[in-house]
C-alpha cells in the first residue's frame, strides 16, 4: 500500500450554457449546472422540463448542440459515454435496464470489469457493494426475477462498481415504496460522503430531493428557473407555482 494517504482532490463537473435542439425543438436552452466532489445536487422540474436531457448531455449519451461539458478545465463535450464512464462519470437509467439474464452479482461485476478492474478486484468490490446495499441474499439469482424496487438498487450498485467520481442518477426512487425510498436516500448520502463522489440526482419525488440534496436546480420548459439551497427553493413562489402548483 502507499505510504502517503491520498487526499481526494475536489473536482467540478459542469454543463456550461448547455443547449439541445431536437430537429427544431429546443429541449434545453442555456442551462448551466455544476456538481462538486462529495456534493449531492438535485435536478427537479415537471415532466418535459429537460431534466433527463440535461443528464444525457452530462453523461455523454447526447452531445449538446450548444455549450460545453467540463471536468475541471478539461473539455469533455465530444467524449463518448464509454470514455466518460472510464474516467469516472457514470449514469443510471430511468428504466434501470439491468442485465436480466445475468445474476445480480454479475450485473455489478461486469461494470467493475468494464472500467478496467482485474477479475479478483472486481469480485472483491462486488462483494463489498452487495453487502453495503443489502443485496447479499439475492446475489446469485437472475436480476430479472428481482422486484422493481430492488432493481433500482442493483442499477445503483452497478454504477458504483465503476468507482465513479461523479454519479448521475435518473429518478432512482421511482417505483419504490416509502421504506425503500428512505433506504435509498441513506444509501445515496453515504455514497456521496464515503467516496467523495459527486451526485447529480434527477428526481420527481420532492421528499427524496429535499432530504438528500445539498443544492437544487429547478428546470421548466428547458430553462433554469432557480438554483440554490433546498430550504430557499421550497418557498420560492415561482417553484411553488410551476412544481407544487401542478402536483397539489
Amino acid at each position: 500500500m502507499t505510504t502517503t494517504t491520498e487526499v481526494p482532490q475536489v473536482e467540478t463537473l459542469q454543463l456550461v450554457d448547455g443547449g439541445m435542439n431536437f430537429d427544431g425543438v429546443q429541449a434545453l436552452e442555456d442551462v448551466s449546472i455544476s456538481v462538486k466532489s462529495g456534493e449531492v445536487v438535485g435536478l427537479i422540474g415537471p415532466n418535459g422540463s429537460g431534466k433527463t436531457t440535461t443528464l444525457n448531455l452530462v453523461s455523454g449519451m447526447l452531445h449538446p448542440t450548444t455549450g460545453r461539458v467540463m471536468l475541471g478545465d478539461k473539455d469533455l463535450t465530444r467524449m463518448s459515454m464509454r470514455k466518460r464512464a472510464r474516467i469516472g462519470i457514470v449514469r443510471t437509467f430511468q428504466s434501470v435496464r439491468v442485465f436480466g439474464r445475468l445474476t445480480v452479482a454479475e450485473n455489478i461485476e461486469v461494470a467493475a470489469l468494464g472500467c478496467g478492474m482485474r477479475r479478483h478486484e472486481a469480485r472483491e468490490l462486488t462483494e463489498e457493494l452487495l453487502e453495503e446495499l443489502n443485496l447479499e441474499s439475492v446475489a446469485n439469482t437472475a436480476a430479472e426475477s428481482s422486484p422493481a424496487g430492488l432493481i433500482r438498487t442493483i442499477g445503483i450498485a452497478r454504477a458504483l462498481a465503476t468507482r465513479p467520481k461523479f454519479l448521475l442518477l435518473d429518478e432512482p426512487a421511482a417505483g419504490q415504496n416509502e421504506s425503500e425510498a428512505v433506504e435509498l436516500i441513506e444509501a445515496i448520502r453515504n455514497i456521496s460522503r464515503r467516496r467523495a463522489c459527486g451526485v447529480l440526482l434527477v428526481e420527481h419525488d420532492m421528499s427524496v430531493v429535499m432530504s438528500t440534496c445539498d443544492r437544487l436546480h429547478v428546470l421548466d420548459s428547458g430553462r433554469t428557473v432557480i438554483a440554490g439551497l433546498p430550504q430557499d427553493i421550497r418557498h420560492d413562489p415561482q417553484v411553488v407555482e410551476i412544481y407544487f402548483g401542478k402536483r397539489h
Binding site: 453523461s59 449519451m61 463518448s80 459515454m81 464509454r82 464512464a85 472510464r86 457514470v90 449514469r91 437509467f93 435496464r97 442485465f99 436480466g100 439474464r101 445475468l102 454479475e106 450485473n107 461485476e109 461486469v110 461494470a111 470489469l113 468494464g114 472500467c115 478496467g116 452497478r158 454504477a159 462498481a161 465503476t162
Partner: peptide, 17 residues
C-alpha cells in the same frame, strides 16, 4: 460476463465502460 451483458443491452454495457 461482458459478452453476455453486451448481448442483452449493448448501450448500457458501454455506459458502464
Amino acid at each position: 460476463v461482458q459478452l453476455r451483458a453486451s448481448a442483452e443491452n449493448f448501450q448500457v454495457a458501454k455506459s458502464l465502460g
